[in-house]
């Protein structure tokens, strides 16, 4: 009969079809792809003060750098950041366009409570508990940082102390009669990504 001869054949065909579909769905190693990417940065002048020509290799971070100033302090705004003027105690607030993270430059009186007191305060702010011994290590191991203007200070990187949530990057410079704080508070993962720009900002500080 047709019915009995027809259905196994059909079943077989269906099976083959299903198998083909399944096989097609399986993953394979993708071949390398080539493409040409042309990207234009917005004119820096439209976003902030005067622009300098992009350095070789810096174009990869999308926008050329520009210089900024607050009071008598000068710095290079890292590419991809924008600088807003002074407000209150802040000499400047810089914003990373990609992540929205904010970086502030603040000047306080000499000493400003000392590194240890400040770090303890920041730890409290971040809700990080640190044993006394660990705190000492953290303070002692803070890498020194030197700027083109000859400022000498330390970089306190809190990203190493926390698994997730918020963290901080703070550079603290002791100047003559003043303490300069460059501070960034944001999600830990964001800060790790912005660290390069943060240090480049710190290193560009000068009078």
């Amino acid at each position: 009969m047709t019915a009995s001869s027809g259905s196994p054949a059909l079943t077989r065909r269906l099976c083959v079809a299903t198998f083909c579909l399944l096989a097609a769905g399986c993953s394979r190693q993708e071949e390398p792809r080539r493409y040409t990417e042309i990207e234009g940065s917005p004119p820096a002048a439209a976003r902030e003060g005067s622009a300098v020509a992009p350095r070789q290799g810096s174009a990869a971070v999308q926008r050329p750098e520009s210089s900024g100033q607050g009071g008598d302090l000068h710095w290079q705004t890292p590419a991809g950041w924008t600088s807003r003027g002074a407000s209150g105690m802040r000499l400047a607030t810089l914003t990373a366009a990609d992540s929205g993270a904010e970086c502030t430059i603040v000047r306080l009186g000499a000493g400003a409570g000392g590194a240890r007191a400040n770090v303890i305060r920041w730890l409290g702010q971040l809700k990080i508990d640190l044993a006394e011994a660990d705190l000492d290590t953290f303070l002692n191991d803070a890498p020194p940082i030197k700027s083109t203007g000859g400022f000498v200070g330390s970089l306190y990187d809190f990203t190493g102390l926390t698994e997730q949530g918020d963290a901080m990057l703070v550079a603290m410079f002791e100047l003559e009669g003043a303490t300069l704080f460059v501070k960034m508070l944001n999600a830990r993962d964001v800060l790790v990504g912005e660290r390069t720009r943060f240090t480049s900002l710190c290193e560009s500080l000068r009078f």
Binding site: T36, E37, I38, P54, A60
Partner: peptide
């Protein structure tokens, strides 16, 4: 750089 603000990247990329 193609001009002051434009860059061209010739990329080779592997995914997966």
């Amino acid at each position: 750089s193609l001009d002051a603000s434009t860059v061209q990247r010739d990329v080779v990329a592997v995914a997966g």
